[in-house]
C-alpha cells in the first residue's frame, strides 16, 4: 500500500517537474513548479510522516518563493516569443551539470539513516513530529543550524545593500534626489 502510494506520488512529482522544463510559457513553468512542490510536500507528509516539514515546504516554497517568481514574471510579462534561442552546447552543459548534482545528492543520501539514535524521548515519538525535530535541531545539529541562520542573515543584508540604489549623483530637474 505504502509502496504503491510512493510510486504514484513520485510519478506525479516527476511528471510535473518535467513539465516545468518542457512548457513554453514561463508562467506555466512556474505553476508546474508550484505543483511539484505540492507533490514533494505530499511525499514528506505521507511517506515520512513529517507533517511539519511538509507544511513548511508549502508555506516557504509554494506560498512565498514561487509567488515572488510569479510576481517577477508577471511584471516582465514574458512570453514564448521573447524566449532566447539556446545553443546545443548550452543544453548539453546544463544536462551535465544537473546530472552531476543528481549524482552528488544520491551519493550523499544513499546511506542516510532515518532512525534516530538517542534518548528515550526520541524513541517514543514519531520521527517527523515537531518535538523530535526541535530536539534534534537544537541539540545535535545546533552549530550547523546557527551557521545556516548567519548565512541567511548575510544574504538578507546583501539583498538590502544591492537593492539600495546610489542616488547621490541623480537629479530631478535641478533638485538632487533625496
Amino acid at each position: 500500500m505504502l509502496t504503491s502510494a510512493f510510486y504514484f506520488i513520485a510519478f506525479v512529482t516527476i511528471f510535473f517537474a518535467i513539465m516545468v522544463v518542457v512548457s513554453k510559457n514561463p508562467i506555466h513553468s512556474v505553476l508546474y513548479l508550484v505543483l511539484t512542490f505540492f507533490c514533494i510536500s505530499a511525499n514528506y507528509i505521507f511517506m515520512l510522516d513529517a507533517t511539519f516539514v511538509g507544511m513548511v515546504n508549502v508555506i516557504v516554497y509554494a506560498g512565498a518563493i514561487m509567488v515572488l517568481f510569479l510576481y517577477v514574471l508577471m511584471m516582465m510579462n514574458l512570453n514564448a516569443i521573447a524566449e532566447q534561442k539556446r545553443s546545443v552546447l548550452f543544453k548539453i552543459s546544463a544536462a551535465v551539470t544537473g546530472g552531476m548534482l543528481l549524482l552528488v545528492l544520491v551519493a550523499a543520501l544513499k546511506d542516510a539513516n532515518l532512525q534516530i539514535q538517542g534518548s528515550a524521548l526520541e524513541a517514543e515519538q514519531r520521527i517527523g513530529s515537531i518535538k523530535v525535530l526541535g530536539y534534534v535541531l537544537y541539540s545535535k545539529y545546533q552549530l550547523p543550524f546557527e551557521v545556516a541562520s548567519i548565512l541567511f542573515l548575510v544574504a538578507m543584508i546583501g539583498a538590502v545593500v544591492l537593492g539600495k540604489k546610489d542616488n547621490s549623483t541623480k537629479t530631478i530637474g535641478i533638485e538632487p534626489v533625496k
Binding site: F52, M55, V58, I59, A62, G63, V67, S129, I130
Partner: peptide, 14 residues
C-alpha cells in the same frame, strides 16, 4: 492536526 496553525498558514499562503 498537531501543526494546526501551520496548516491554516499554508492554505492562506496558497
Amino acid at each position: 492536526l498537531d501543526i494546526g496553525i501551520l496548516y491554516v498558514f499554508a492554505v492562506v499562503s496558497v
